[in-house]
Design a protein around this nucleic acid. Structure first.
Length: 813
DNA sequence: ATAGGGTTAG
């Protein structure tokens, strides 16, 4: 009975595995555990007393075969279907039970039928896999013989055959799998699509791909085969088979067309999907809701909203009613384009049509709002979702977790994870990677690594997203040798790595100005059998620009086509920014022209770079015009675009225009950023307009805007310079209350300026605050105050300061 | 058989 223990535990808790990691995953402990347990299963058979075991000496092969004709009834003890802890007895008829029940293969196949009967398919497969491993390759004739001789007519017998074929396929014993499949055809047992899938997967690198076609040539085989190829993203082979066999050997069905459309879309070939759509109509099929929804999805993902809407109108015209999926697909399309207002309009339309938004609709909306920076609206949606009583799933929770991280609300993550656990959901590999990415970005590498460990414990090994998060963390902190060490270890492990991981480290080198290592790693990409992407080149171009090798960068731009790559907006913007940095506006504009000529659309960053370039040349009004053009071109300027222009006008001393742009931001629904306020406070203070600076500060704080420390200290120091010590103290206090960490620099900035204006008594107020906060004096600040006290003849303070200098040992440093 | 979540570059 001992051997049952781990198995029994499995009855109680069913574990879920991420779909994509099911295949090929041999490191999962449960299966290793099970594999080591299963051969020792203490399966008990009670051989009837009237049928004593044959003494070994009399067991000749002749006797055995003679006895094999008799059929006898045997009692079998099996775990009870109601309670796995108990056993129950089943009567089974066998030909020659003595012989067969001593054969472990037979007893295991009995167990297999028992498991299948109770729907425990995973355990069934595990047991079959163990048998196959024990028997080795070319064991299929023996096992098939036992199955067909003794188990014909048993319930679930077909299931055993099917899974035997599947497990052989999974164990890469393809010849055995094909043998079983052939026997199944003889016995008229239908093989499942899952089995075909497994076989196809095992055969994909061998020359045996045709084999299943040879053994299983039913009307439906080609459809199954094409579906299976589509599921494995082997579009070329699917199309080849479709073209070769269409008309003569099989008639495609609507599902096959839908699968071909789906696969084409998933691989990014929407045009091809369109052709299949037309071809389907030519074959006399009416596209159904799956056909429409699938192609709509493909169009939406490709950003072709207009065509998608066209299809959705056709759909209605031809009497295929759009359903929730249709609307969700369209809403997702708008989400991808960042057009959440259009998405909202669609919701209204679907409600008018009597369709209720479901959990997927809400997930898309929350994700869209949070990604667009409107977390408040995301929260409203989240509340609505909760109030509707939907049962939340891990995807919805993941979206919300990601929102929290992206808005820097890291302390709220814990309770959400707590809630996920409380409702009985398990974190999956995406949820983990969101957490790990979030913690890495928040700088909490310890939490991230702790989560990696938990992933291993839960048998969800960290994947490329997780490795990428850790590598980015290290690269951002210029811990490049550590990043490289990890990357090398991953390369050594022999698995084909995601080129993104190379990109991250190459970018790290480029940003650090280490172009030798950047180029070295770039070459390693080819050694690893991978291909660089446009991101790889953009990082290299950025690196060359940063190192002042602009010509090299430009040459790289023009060599992209040799690698089959096209420059994108980032490529051009990087180069344009570099030439701008050198004050070479001409080349910047030249590159812009080249970019437009090549059909690469400038984006909001490109425009910001151009505006900055013109501002730096004193042409603010040209920049202002560019900002207006952006609206005409349908590109919404972001905070950085406005800040760039505001900075231009600030540096030109045009306070009025700076504030005009600030107001325009608010009017356009764009929340000014902390940088916007830094610029505005700075320009007011430079122009001695402290009245307005105070007013703005009070107003903004009142509104709950979180300012940077720079904004406070700008105003405080301006007051010091003007000698408004009272105001300086007031705002210093507000800065402290806002929770900023105050250092000696903040105090010395204030004290310096007060001393310069001979406001020694006010300087003393700050000195007291500073000592009260436990911040030690430094020599420089002492000397400043010492000189001021001498100038003002404050001998007492002078002596006090001298004493401080001597007793604190500042002179010895 | 169709829909929703996570990495890299300016």
């Amino acid at each position: 009975m001992d051997g049952f223990e781990p198995i029994r535990r499995r009855f109680k808790k069913k574990e879920k595995k991420p779909k994509c990691e099911r295949e090929n995953d041999t490191t999962r402990t449960p299966s290793m555990l099970r594999r080591s347990i299963l051969p020792f299963l203490p399966w008990k058979f009670k051989i009837p007393a009237r049928c004593p075991p044959t003494p070994p000496s009399t067991r000749s092969s002749a006797a055995a075969s003679a006895a094999a004709t008799a059929e006898e009834e045997v009692d079998l003890s099996v775990p009870s279907s109601r309670s796995p802890d108990r056993e129950e007895t089943t009567k089974v008829r066998f030909r020659n039970p003595r012989r067969f029940l001593r054969d472990p293969r037979v007893s295991r196949l009995v167990f297999c039928h028992n498991l299948a009967g109770r729907g425990m398919i995973e355990d069934l497969r595990e047991l079959l896999k163990q048998m196959i491993v024990d028997e080795g390759s070319n064991s299929s004739p023996t096992l098939c013989g036992i199955l067909s001789d003794n188990f014909k007519g048993w319930d679930c017998n077909g299931l055993i055959w099917d899974n035997l074929a599947k497990v052989y396929a999974e164990t890469k014993m393809v010849h055995d799998a094909l043998f079983v499949l052939g026997k199944m055809i003889d016995l008229n047992i239908q093989a499942s699509i899952l089995t075909f899938d497994s076989l196809m997967y095992s055969l994909r690198c061998t020359g045996l791909l045709r084999a299943p076609v040879e053994v299983a040539r039913s009307e439906n085989t080609y459809n199954t085969l094409i579906d299976s190829l589509c599921k494995q993203f082997r579009l070329n082979e699917a199309i080849r088979l479709f073209q070769e066999k269409r008309g003569c050997e099989f008639r495609p069905c609507i599902v096959t067309f839908n699968n071909l459309i789906c696969c084409s879309c998933n691989m990014g070939y929407v045009g091809l999907a369109n052709s299949f759509f037309s071809m389907m109509i030519k074959h006399g099929f009416f596209p159904d809701k799956y056909s429409y929804n699938t192609i709509l999805h493909g169009l939406c993902v490709a950003g072709l909203m207009e065509e998608a809407l066209q299809y959705s109108e056709d759909m209605e015209r031809y009497g295929v009613e759009p359903d929730v999926v249709t609307y969700n697909v369209l809403i997702y399309g708008y989400h991808l384009l960042g057009m959440m207002s259009e998405a909202q309009k669609l919701i209204q339309r679907m409600v008018v049509k009597g369709l209720e938004p479901d959990i997927v609709t809400y997930t898309i909306l929350i994700s869209g709002h949070c990604r667009g920076g409107d977390v408040e609206e995301g929260l409203v949606m989240w509340q609505e979702l909760l109030s509707r009583g939907f049962e939340l799933n891990i995807i919805t929770y993941s979206v919300f977790l990601d929102c929290l991280f992206k808005r820097g609300r890291v302390d709220e993550v814990d309770w959400l994870v707590e809630e996920i656990r409380a409702v009985g959901l398990d974190l999956d590999h995406i949820a983990y990677s969101i957490l790990i990415n979030g913690y890495c970005r928040a700088g909490d590498i310890n939490r991230a690594i702790q989560l990696c460990r938990i992933m291993y414990i839960n048998k969800i090994p960290p994947n490329s997203y997780v490795h990428g998060a850790v590598l980015s963390y290290l690269c951002k902190r210029e811990m490049l040798s550590d990043a490289r060490w990890i990357l090398d270890k991953l390369i050594e492990s022999g698995q084909l790595l995601d080129v993104v991981l190379y990109n991250i480290v190459i970018d790290g080198y480029a940003k650090a100005g280490d172009m030798d290592d950047a180029v070295g790693l770039y070459e390693q990409i080819f050694y690893s059998g991978l291909t660089p992407t446009i991101v790889t080149f953009n990082s290299l171009i950025h690196g060359f620009c940063k190192s002042g090798m602009l010509n090299k960068a430009r040459v790289l731009l023009h060599s992209l086509s040799l690698h089959g790559l096209s420059p994108n907006a980032v490529t051009y913007t990087t180069l344009m920014d570099a030439y701008r940095g050198e004050g070479n506006i001409n080349v910047m504009v030249e590159l812009l022209d080249e970019m437009v000529a090549k059909g690469v659309a400038p984006n909001v960053v490109t425009y910001s770079v151009i505006m900055k370039g013109f501002c730096e040349q004193g042409q603010m009004w040209v920049s202002r015009k560019i900002l207006k053009d952006m609206y005409d071109k349908g590109i919404s300027p972001d905070q950085i675009a406005y800040n760039t222009l505001i900075q231009g006008f600030c540096e030109a001393g045009n306070v009025e225009m700076s504030f005009f742009l600030h107001d325009e931001m608010l009017q356009k629904g764009l929340e000014p950023s902390p940088v916007t306020y830094n610029l505005l406070f700075n320009v007011l203070c430079l122009h001695d307009d402290l009245k307005n600076a105070d007013r703005l500060l009070d107003m903004v704080v009142e509104k709950g805007v979180r300012l940077r420390k720079f904004a406070y200290s700008t105003v405080i120091q301006a007051h010091c310079i003007k000698g408004n010590a009272y105001k300086a103290v007031l705002y210093f206090d507000k800065m402290v209350k806002a929770g900023f960490e105050i250092s000696i620099k903040d105090y010395s900035g204030v004290i310096n300026r007060l001393c310069k204006r001979n406001l020694l008594n006010d300087a003393k107020v700050f000195l007291k605050m500073m000592l009260r906060d436990g911040i030690p004096l430094d020599l420089e600040l002492c000397v400043v105050m010492l000189n001021a006290s001498r100038r003002q003849g404050d001998h007492r303070f002078e002596i006090e300061l001298q004493a401080i200098i001597i007793t604190s040992g500042l002179l010895c440093e």
